Each structure stands twice: as C-alpha cells, then as structure tokens.
Amino acid sequence: MPRPGQRHPLSDESLPDRIAIGVLIRTFPPELVDAAVDCTGRTQLRSRLLPAQVVVYFVLAMCLFNQEGYESVTRRLTDGLEWARRGRTQPGEPTTAALSRARARLGPEPLKALFARACRLSTGPRYRGRRLVSLDSTTFDLPVTDSNLEHFGRPGNAGRNAYPQARVGVLAECGTNAVFAAETAPLRTPEKTVRRRLFSRLGPGMLLLAGRRPPDFDLWCPASATGADLLWRARHRTPLPVVERFDDGSYSSELITKCGDPVRVRVVETAAGRLVTTILRPDQAPAGELADLHDGLRKTENALEEVEALQGPDFVLRSRQPAGVEQELYGFLLVHHALRAVRT
C-alpha cells in the first residue's frame, strides 16, 4: 500500500541521480561504512544479495529519494553504484520484501555508528574564540501501525486519526548547520529530557544558542555545568529582576530554577525579547554583539528545518516498526550531512 506522498517510479535514471549517489559514497566511503557495521556486530556471516554495506547505502538512498518506492530507489542505487565504481559492482535488484527484511536485520545501530564517526564539528564561525552551536528539537510523523503507536505514542489532544510521532533533538554548528549530536525518543519522552541527553557533547569553548523554541530554564544548570557558555531567549513570563545595570544596556539578574539557589545571569533586552547569558561581563561580550548573534540565528534556517525540507510538506516516514523509524531518522541526518558538505 503506498504511503502518503509517494510517487510512481520514474522510467529513466538521470545523471543527477548518479551524481547524488556518488556524493553519498564520497561522503561515506565503503571503508567507513564497513567500520560502522563491524563495530555494531552487523557483519553478515555468509554472502547475500544484500550485504550490510549495500543495505546502509540503500537506507541513505531511500532517504535521499524519499518520495520514491523501494523499487525505484533500488534502481537508482544500483545505477549510481555502478557509475560511481565504474561498473565494478552489480548488487542486483532485490524485491521489496527482501529489502524490508534486510533493513530489519541491519537495525539502526550501524546508521548511528556511522553518524558518530562522520558527523562532527567543522570549522564554522566563532565568537570571541567561542565555537557557536545551537540546540533544537522537533517531531516527525510516522505510519499508523500497532508497534509505532505502542512505542512512540500520538499527540494526546489530536484524536485517533493523528499520526504517531518521534522526537528528535540535535546540536548543530551555527553558520554551517553541521549536526554533530542527535537523540531520538518516543513522543511521550519530555522534550527537555531529549535535549538534556545532548549536553554530554557540550564543553568549554562553546557558546550554546537556543533554536526555534526557547528551552526550559530547568536545563540551565546542567547545560552550564558542562563548561559551555549559554545565550538563550527568555519567555515573556520568566522573572528576571534587575540587580545591576551595565553601560551597554544589559543588566545582571538572578534566575530561579529547580537547581536550588538563584543563579547569577546577565540579561540583554532586544526588540525580539530578552536574552539570558552566562557571560556576566559586558567587556567579554557586549550586549549589541550578543543581540546580533541571536538575531542572525533566528533569521536563518537551522539544521532541523533543513532536514525537514528534505522530506517535503506533509511527509510521513515510511518505517512501520520502531527500529526502522530510528534507522530512517539517522538516515535523514546522514543525508543532510552529505548534502550540506556539498554546499559548503
């Protein structure tokens, strides 16, 4: 049964499709894919039409050509692999059922391992020596199956016709939108829990900016405890009393959180709202510069918006089992990494 938004396969593969597959192979060369497969114990003990390496490339191609059915993706992948390797490989054209079984055998672990090996911080912009990174999260619609409903859950106020959803949180480098950390979870997992799991990738020398939605300030203490500096937008009702005003227009304040005692912070007032930062001295980060930094992030498309744009409007993931959903989500993050590398 076709899923929402799926197109009929095209009759002819084109050079751009071959180049796109070539980009995936160049970004994730076979030796890197094999290392990710080996470290997760997914290496096959006997020869198959669909060895693990080919299945990894199939998942990436499936996400790249996300509006196409399995048969069309397989033809594009086969044609692209033969073109990229100058005819040295002919994986054949397995059936949709065989591809589904191969994806299930592979699981999400090799895609997660490949992400960990390939998706790292690049040489993006810095602010006064600090590497600029952003925190964001969103949800993705999933096929309505018993296993997806049981594992992920659906929005409580959307009725029985709502799609189940998965949460995804990421840390990305500002400017390049290079995603270097990701977490996936069922919808029932609180958003702040998903975001907190990402903090292990933060550290001194970073300045963490919030993404599209302001984070819960209960995360302030665990985030700042990593040694990273923070610059977050405050909600309208967040109490931030003036303790001391500075010449640049900012002021020191005390932030009330669940950490215990009030936390000393600095507040920068802008036309778009109040910004709260751990950088307490104006000479280290003048108010105008911090406002420009955050305004620049607010006006530009961020990494998760780019990942969502890969899917198109009203898109529903194709995976009908929870393990396949996680595999597919990491596939989209890896494809985003490959395409971003081409643009930069």
Rank of each mutant, 00 (worst) to 15 (best):
R3H: 15
P4T: 13
Q6K: 06
R7I: 11
L10Q: 14
S11C: 13
E13Y: 11
P16A: 10
D17E: 14
R18F: 09
L24Y: 06
A36H: 00
V37G: 00
G41Y: 13
R42M: 01
R46E: 15
S47E: 15
R48E: 12
R48S: 14
P51M: 02
P51S: 08
Y57H: 04
M62D: 15
M62T: 14
F65Q: 06
F65E: 01
N66A: 13
E71P: 03
T74F: 03
T74E: 01
T78D: 07
G80E: 02
L81T: 01
L81C: 00
A84G: 04
A84I: 07
R88W: 13
Q90D: 15
G92I: 04
P94I: 01
T95I: 06
L99R: 07
A102D: 04
R103P: 10
A104E: 06
L106P: 06
P108S: 14
E109H: 12
E109S: 08
P110W: 10
L111I: 05
L111A: 08
F115V: 03
R117T: 10
R117I: 01
G124S: 13
R126A: 12
G129F: 14
V133F: 02
S134N: 07
L135F: 00
N148S: 09
N148M: 05
E150G: 09
G153N: 14
R154T: 11
P155D: 06
N157M: 14
N157H: 15
A162T: 09
G169F: 00
V170K: 00
C174N: 14
G175S: 13
G175T: 11
T176H: 04
V179Q: 02
F180N: 02
A182Y: 01
L187K: 06
E191G: 13
K192G: 01
V194N: 07
S200H: 07
G205P: 11
P214F: 08
D216I: 01
F217A: 08
A225F: 07
T226Q: 10
L230R: 00
W232G: 01
A234E: 00
R235D: 06
T238A: 08
V242A: 11
V243K: 10
R245P: 01
G249N: 08
S253I: 00
I256K: 08
I256D: 12
T257I: 07
P262M: 05
P262A: 09
V265H: 04
T270W: 04
A271K: 14
A271L: 12
G273W: 10
I279Q: 07
I279A: 09
L290V: 01
D292S: 06
G296R: 10
G296T: 04
K299R: 15
K299W: 12
K299A: 15
E301A: 15
A309D: 08
G312V: 03
G312N: 11
F315W: 12
Q321W: 10
F332V: 02
L333K: 05
L334I: 05
L334A: 05
H336S: 05
